[in-house]
Design a protein around this nucleic acid. Structure first.
Lengths: 141, 141
DNA sequence: TATTGTTATACTCTATAACTATA
DNA sequence: TATAGTTATAGAGTATAACAATA
């Protein structure tokens, strides 16, 4: 299920709008992934592999345990969407590389994940700038 | 992991801001849930039980299979956070009720899930209105 | 000794299929 | 027959602990 979904007791209209937006975003992401035979987590990992990365790096970026990444990568590798190669400098490390098939599949997924694109398209260019500015300010970055 | 996280190839700054915002939101939700001994899915379900609901209704709202809800509710019931009672009119149905312990725990969770509140607090009242309006417009509702 | 990554294990989320009870 | 919900099962995500190989 789309995880943060649900009527958290949002006290302001802005909070409610955030909840609804995140809910819709997450559901659309999940749906797009499934449509391509991926889980959300697999799509998420594939998306980070535009450039090769080590397992540790991936785990840190994703904020999860390394053993978790090992399993996800193993499943992607079975389907020839990624490959593992031993790091050139440190022979303990592995570089995870997206295969051409993985890159193609991810590009298709991204194309199909139209949520953000279509959300943006509802706004004028000036409104798009405003939204970006407000979200950054709300995030504190 | 926070599911939609990751550098989807966002072509515009507004898209990137959306990605970052949703990512931060999801991570904060998960973290707050774990802090209270809940999974994100459990917190999500508990949050929908401000008023009693049937299993079918819950499954439809969450967009997942009913058998899934059965399991989540079973785990919450083991911990006395919800109870099941047979519906008054249709004896096939169950009304899921949050116990006082469940309501207290959820209130604590919500209090601890400060992401949306603190994001909002970065904005002036006028900016909060703008953000809500833009998010609604982007969502098409 | 510390770090990278894996394996073993256990729990949870999730869906599908088959089932019971009720309508 | 149709619907509400459960059970059985299987695959996937997740973390912890123990481990091997390398630094």
């Amino acid at each position: 299920m789309a995880v943060p979904s649900g009527p958290v007791a949002a006290s302001t209209e802005a909070e409610r709008a955030m909840f609804d937006f995140v809910d819709a975003y997450d559901r659309a992401y999940e749906t797009a992934a499934v449509r391509h035979g991926l889980t959300a987590a697999q799509a998420c990992v594939l998306g980070r592999l535009a450039d090769p990365r080590g397992m540790r790096e991936l785990a840190d970026e994703l904020g999860c345990d390394a053993s978790n990444v090992t399993q996800i990568i193993a499943r992607l590798e079975t389907r020839d969407l990624v490959r593992r190669r031993t790091g050139p400098h440190d022979r303990r490390s592995r570089q995870i590389v997206r295969t051409p098939a993985g890159s193609t599949l991810y590009a298709d997924f991204e194309e199909s994940f139209a949520f953000a694109r279509s959300a943006i398209s509802q706004l004028s260019p000036a409104e798009q700038d405003q939204l970006a500015t407000l979200l950054r300010k709300a995030l504190g970055r």
